[in-house]
Every structure is written in structure tokens, then in C-alpha cells.
């Protein structure tokens, strides 16, 4: 949106800010979930102990179910159903009102609950920064290290082609 338009429409400008803010928070929550889904429940729980947690309650007890995983024809075409995966989910509400959701592959409902708790904390102005610092950032670093190590092992199996010189020197 052009600046001139924003100045002419102050009301919509503030709603644009709100949307941006929401998008930012959504991106932040999603990024945190992506890290947490790859961590073990025990690792998340251990790091949560470093925080003085606010009062919270389980809005939805951990529940196991299935998600149908989809691929695409040819990798980039129309979707098709590949097969299901087990998924656990939970929801947690902080006393201050923030509602967090936890979804993860597998059947570990305690992990889903911990992710939900972290998601609620990420949204809280009091805890958002601490959760990022104490939980998400170190777990992200761990995940990245693991991936880099795997990538380094894979890289050693890359084929270097060379052409044999034929005939006499």
C-alpha cells in the first residue's frame, strides 16, 4: 500500500498494521512449531523447567489421531492421498487468556501438550521473548546441527565424474 493512501485512510492503515502484526505473530508461531515438532518431549520439558511458568490449563487433553498425507502427481501436479500418519494434538490456555495449540507426528500426547504450552507462551507479551531465548533458539540450533551433520555425510557420497584420457598420451 502506498504511503499516500495510508495517510488518506488512517483507519484502514491501522487495520493493515494489525494484519501485519498478526502475520508476524503467525510466522513466529509457525517457526516455533516447526522446531518443537522435531524435538523430543523430554528435551522440551527440560527446557521449560528453566522458566517460571504462568498458570495454565489444558483446554483440550492430548488426543491421538490420523492425518492423511498427500503428495502430488509428478511431484508438482494435482494432489493424491499417499497414506496416513499418526498425529497427536492438544490445546493449552494460559491464565492470561492466550490459547496455544500443539500438533505433532506420532502418538506422544505429552509432547503435543508441551508444544501447545510453548505456542501459548510464544503469543504472550510477558513470555514470548523468554520462550524464544530459552527453548526455541537452542532447540533450533540443535536441529540445524543435526541436519548439517547429516548433510555432510550425504555430501561425501556425491559423485565426482572425471573423463578418462583415451589413447596414447
Amino acid at each position: 500500500m502506498k504511503l499516500s493512501i495510508i495517510i488518506d485512510n488512517l483507519e484502514s492503515a491501522s487495520s493493515v498494521d494489525l494484519v501485519t502484526q498478526q502475520n508476524n505473530q503467525q510466522a513466529q508461531r509457525k517457526a516455533a512449531m516447526a522446531v518443537l515438532a522435531h524435538a523430543e518431549a523430554g528435551e522440551i520439558a527440560a527446557r521449560l523447567r528453566a522458566l517460571a511458568l504462568p498458570a495454565h490449563q489444558n483446554l483440550r487433553e492430548g488426543e491421538n489421531g490420523l492425518v492423511m498425507l498427500r503428495g502430488r502427481v509428478g511431484g508438482d501436479g494435482a494432489p493424491f492421498n499417499l497414506g496416513e500418519a499418526t498425529v497427536s494434538r492438544a490445546a493449552v490456555r494460559l491464565a492470561s487468556g492466550e490459547v496455544g495449540f500443539g500438533y505433532t507426528l506420532g502418538r506422544d500426547s505429552e509432547k503435543a501438550r508441551l508444544i501447545a504450552l510453548c505456542d501459548a507462551l510464544v503469543q504472550s507479551s510477558d513470555f514470548g521473548a523468554a520462550v524464544e531465548r530459552e527453548i526455541i533458539a537452542p532447540l533450533r540450533e540443535q536441529l540445524m546441527t543435526r541436519r548439517q551433520q547429516a548433510a555432510a555425510k550425504t555430501a561425501a557420497t556425491k559423485v565426482d565424474f572425471y573423463t578418462m584420457v583415451r589413447g596414447e598420451g
Binding site: 491421538n64 489421531g65 490420523l66 492425518v67 492423511m68 498425507l69 498427500r70 503428495g71 502430488r72 511431484g75 508438482d76 494432489p79 492421498n81 499417499l82 496416513e84 500418519a85 499418526t86 498425529v87 494434538r89 541436519r147 547429516a150 548433510a151 550425504t154
Partner: peptide, 17 residues
Amino acid sequence: LPRFGASEPVDTGAMRV
């Protein structure tokens, strides 16, 4: 088990190969 729904189609182009 109950089914929660279907995933977004996976992107095999972005695979960590």
C-alpha cells in the same frame, strides 16, 4: 483412530536429500 484431516501436499522439490 479418528482422522483429523488431510495434510498440505508435501513438496518433494524441497526434500532434504
